[in-house]
Amino acid sequence: MTAPTFGARARAWSRRAEVRGVFLIWVVLTALLCLFSFVPARLMGAPASPTKQAVETTMTLFTLAASPVAAFVWAIAIYSLVRWRHRGKQAPTEDGPAIRTNTPASALWVVVSSVLCLFLLVWGFVEVQAVATSASASDAMVVDVTGQQWVWTFSYPQEGNLESDQLYLPVNRPVIFHVTSKDVIHSFWVVQMGIKVDANPGETTQTSVTPDRLGRFDIRCAELCGLLHADMETSVHVVSPTDFRSWLRSNGGPG
């Protein structure tokens, strides 16, 4: 008994001008926003580690997921404005319909936003586990990173504590950074690898990554650390294992 009534109501509902109008704007906006969803990852540049790749995937995915939501909000706003606009200096003589609430619409809204939130959470927790794998690798290389106003120093405890002001890393080998500071808080950010952790005085913090692309990338300080904060940057060189050995040798390391 109820099913046909419901179907008939749904059909009548879907024939209403405002429903069709909003639907149309919503589809167009969603399509545009979905196309736009690939822009943030492009702006972030080519990733140099699986971690950065995961972050870029997240950005794209979250933008895709947000597209229909944002499009829906804007579609209603735009349609209402175009269809029901009142111009002039005086208030409209007639009020709108006295709609106090709409329980199905409200319930649907809460359910959809809860489902989206749940998706974000599940995705986030899975991703956290995924990017942490470098830290537990048995062949990981350890690099001690020390920030001080306004330079970075890198030291390789497994290579006779060899020190350098530029970071050299062999490609495809997990690396664990132990990060600390001599004075104020700095933040160790390897931009193209998508990792960051604060350098705190008196504490050692940890982050890890597996660089997977050869090249020269940027390390920047991401926590305001005083006068020359803007100059506190250096480079990371990701090289082949052979080149890494020879760099170690040429800098007095054990090779």
């Binding site: 971690t51 979250f62 947000a66 974000l120 933040s187």
Partner: peptide, 21 residues
């Protein structure tokens, strides 16, 4: 909407590791 959605990116721990600061 833009402020809220970008806030969601930042609430994601790995994305925030990259974008923080």
């Amino acid at each position: 909407i833009i402020g809220g959605v970008t806030g969601i990116y930042l609430s994601d721990v790995p994305a925030d590791y990259d974008l923080h600061g």
